[in-house]
């Protein structure tokens, strides 16, 4: 079974994957918004999602997780989808505040870079037609699309920033 869905918050994505597992659907592969599922026993697996430091560490990361009875189901760029057989003890990749903060910080940086790229595209989309004085409908469409994505990415960025701040407050307490 294939489902198409888009998430900007990995925690919500994990929740959704676990809901699917509860219904007897185990994620097998993720490609650009497409989630490919296999049948499984209801609640057979629990899922987690991690964000690698770099794609090059994937092999050693995978090996390490395997040794801990965690199976890497799929990888997309630096995102990895992990699962283990549900032992009802919970599945938490990051167990202390420091590593939680570091984890979300990495994702935040990625959103930040994406946002800056969006702004650069927007700038080019506005400046070029102005110089060549050829502002056409197509340019407005492009600009609207870029503005839309910029807002979406900024939203995701703010949400993760809030999460990090909450952890920092907890840490200082």
């Amino acid at each position: 079974m294939i489902k198409l869905k888009f998430f900007l918050d990995k925690d919500e994505e994990v929740k959704w994957l676990n809901d699917q597992s509860r219904k007897g659907l185990a994620l097998k592969k993720y490609i650009l918004g497409f989630y490919i599922f296999d049948k499984c026993e209801e609640d057979e697996y629990v899922y987690e999602i991690d964000f690698l430091n770099s794609v090059s560490e994937y092999a050693s990361f995978k090996e390490f997780m395997n040794e801990n009875n965690i199976h890497v189901v799929s990888r997309w760029y630096r995102w990895v989808y992990l699962r283990k057989v549900n032992d009802y003890k919970g599945f938490e990749l990051y167990s202390d505040l420091d590593s939680k903060i570091e984890h979300y910080q990495k994702i935040k940086t990625m959103f930040k870079i994406a946002f800056i790229i969006e702004l650069a595209c927007l700038f080019i989309e506005i400046i070029v037609p102005l110089i060549t004085s050829q502002m056409r409908l197509i340019n407005f469409i492009f600009i609207s699309i870029i503005v839309f994505f910029s807002i979406v990415i900024f939203g995701a960025y703010s949400k993760i920033d809030e999460k990090i701040n909450n952890y920092i407050i907890q840490k200082e307490a």
Binding site: E67, N68, E92, L93, S95, D96
Partner: peptide, 23 residues
């Protein structure tokens, strides 16, 4: 090894500290 560390720490702390694999 990794898994051994997790188990030993669990035992030493009577399950108070359960290290996440990512951590």
């Amino acid at each position: 090894h990794g898994y051994g560390i997790i188990q030993e720490v669990e035992k030493l702390t009577s399950n108070r500290v359960v290290l996440g694999a990512g951590t």
